[in-house]
Write a protein that binds this DNA or RNA. Structure first.
Lengths: 343, 343
DNA sequence: CTGAAAGCGCTAACAG
DNA sequence: CTGTTAGCGCTTTCAG
């Protein structure tokens, strides 16, 4: 008899609560109670049930249980894509806190896919609540979700309807960062990123303007750019070929800054002497770049954790009043801004 | 009337198929058929159903549907943690391919948590199949899963039982990489990483040994290290303080290599002149390090995609014979190995 | 082409 | 302390 034929091709049917009950000589209600340590069960009865459970290798069917109880014990998180350390860190924080609460987590990447709205709506039907990243879906979807009373927390996105929100502080840090550059004495400071592309960048752009205004300087317009390294390199190349080339540039995130570094290297420009550069996020690689990158650290894990906690609270308490949290960020001065390393 | 009191605190009960049926004056079977475009429904009837669906804003309950059909339309992926670009890229590939097949994906991070075995078993009950990353759970769990006939694909882990597996080529590339270093004429080449800690590193270590043997050299023992940058820095510090300090080092991944760069900088060693360094993975930051890192590129997205495809195939076709795939890797020569950049 | 009815596997009153 | 009995919401024969 060959190994292949000694097993059934179809997945073996699992034992049900009825079989366990029969095997133990009790009712299914008793099995259910014993299984969940709910209600009271006589020690002797419990022992019989436990034995039957073991012998039949019984595990309750999650679908049956969830249907009967009316909830999934799962939450979903929707993000634009997973490239870069930012999203993965936030998701890790979310997963961590969710697992601690006994919740499963479903993930969905929209990466600009059309029709992702339907996927998000579908995800809502498979979970008890959702966290939505900034630029994943339009307001129409958020509204529909709100209408369906889906517990919602918006991440790095201004609140909407009754949803909770959690984000990191942007404007003040951007102001401080830009101010730091100004103090270095740079003649012209550029901004690379898309203020309209994400609420976070919009705020950073505002802070950048605040600093300029504070010292009575004109605010140069932004060089619109996506979030990837290649986008940054492209934007920098354009910026550096301008007649009136800036001698400093604040980038909407670290990856863009890496692209700027690359473009500067290609243009034989020295950082920070010919061009100062700053990033945002403080990704792990930031301190290992040449030169080490001055940036702003975001509490990415905490962003995810808090989102999970708010969501869970909202689901289990049926809380309605929205809650909004703003987590602090931290300026990290290294040498790409013109400072000399202390080490 | 205040806004707060104008809404019910509890989540509104969704319309069921019964209400739609009554509303449309048909039976639930007809609603079900119309809803799923299954069987034949008269155009007029379908129109009535569609209208009722729209009016009641009906969406079928996933739990009810799944229970009746006997499957989840979801798969799970288990990884040790999400730090670093490697896991997140593989997961992104997995999510992408899964979404394309209409499957939801549940994630679970074990990060060395004890009791993660039970979480994995539980995940299996919520999905139609699982992909397990290399070092997430012990063989006992894999065996239990196998016994339960859970469709399984092992990622970067040697096959076990009837599970499928997908991984990237390691040994030959490690041999080629080490050989390249040997050709540079380095006197002593170290290895940082834990060959026993993961199958991938084990293979890389073997390839490293192959190259040494091929030129009739002794193979130095590995400096055991974890996968993070801090681990690499620690290992490098130890290595560099040895009397017989190596003049080249192959690292088990790029993050370790970043740590080595950091330690070398602290020790005022010049890379690659005083110490050549290579990594593995070709993470996005690798090309932006100082100096740009020589490494081996892995098809991380494809690893995830193939895992999703194999899993889906196994689930839907009830295939039993295990399938094993080895994806090619590519040597990426930059300058940390001693080569001069072509640019 | 449509409807009745039997599940899918479990939970939770409600009796006893 | 335990069992009976309705559901939970949907799919799917099987008749008609």
């Amino acid at each position: 008899m060959k190994a292949l034929t000694s097993r059934s091709a179809r997945r073996r049917r699992d034992a049900t609560i009825y079989e366990v009950a029969r095997h133990a000589g009790v009712s299914i209600a008793t099995v259910s109670r014993a299984q969940r340590n709910a209600g009271v069960v006589a020690p002797a009865t419990r022992a019989r049930v436990d034995q039957a459970v073991a012998e039949l290798n019984y595990r309750p069917n999650r679908l049956g249980r969830s249907l009967a109880r009316g909830h999934h014990d799962a939450t979903g998180i929707v993000f634009p894509d997973l490239s870069g350390p930012y999203y993965s860190s936030v998701i890790l924080g979310f997963e961590d806190a969710s697992a601690a609460e006994g919740q499963s987590v479903l993930i969905l990447a929209t990466h600009g896919r059309r029709g992702s709205g339907d996927l998000v709506l579908d995800l809502a039907d498979r979970t008890d609540g959702l966290v939505l990243f900034g630029q994943t879906v339009g307001d129409d979807i958020v509204e529909e979700l709100d209408r369906r009373r889906v517990p919602l927390v918006l991440l790095a996105r201004p609140t909407h309807g009754e949803a909770d929100s959690v984000g990191a502080e942007n404007r003040a840090s951007a102001r401080a960062l830009t101010f730091h550059l100004l103090e270095h004495g740079y003649r012209q400071i550029g901004f690379i990123g898309d203020p309209d592309g994400s609420p976070d960048v919009g705020e950073r752009w505002l802070g950048y303007g605040d600093a300029h205004r504070a010292v009575g300087r004109e605010t140069p317009g932004p060089v619109v750019s996506g979030f990837r390294t290649a986008d940054g390199a492209r934007a920098a190349t354009a910026l550096l070929s301008q007649a009136d080339r800036p001698d400093a540039v604040v980038c909407a995130n670290d990856e863009i800054a890496m692209g700027v570094l690359e473009a500067a290297r290609a243009a034989r420009l020295s950082i920070p002497d010919d061009l100062a550069v700053t990033g945002w996020d403080d990704i792990p690689a930031a301190r290992h770049l040449a030169p080490p990158l001055t940036t702003v650290r975001q509490p990415m894990l905490d962003l995810g954790r808090r989102a999970a906690e708010l969501l869970r609270d909202r689901i289990s308490t049926h809380r309605i009043e929205p809650r909004h949290e703003l987590l602090p960020t931290e300026l990290v001065i290294r040498s790409s801004c013109g400072c000399t390393p202390s080490t």
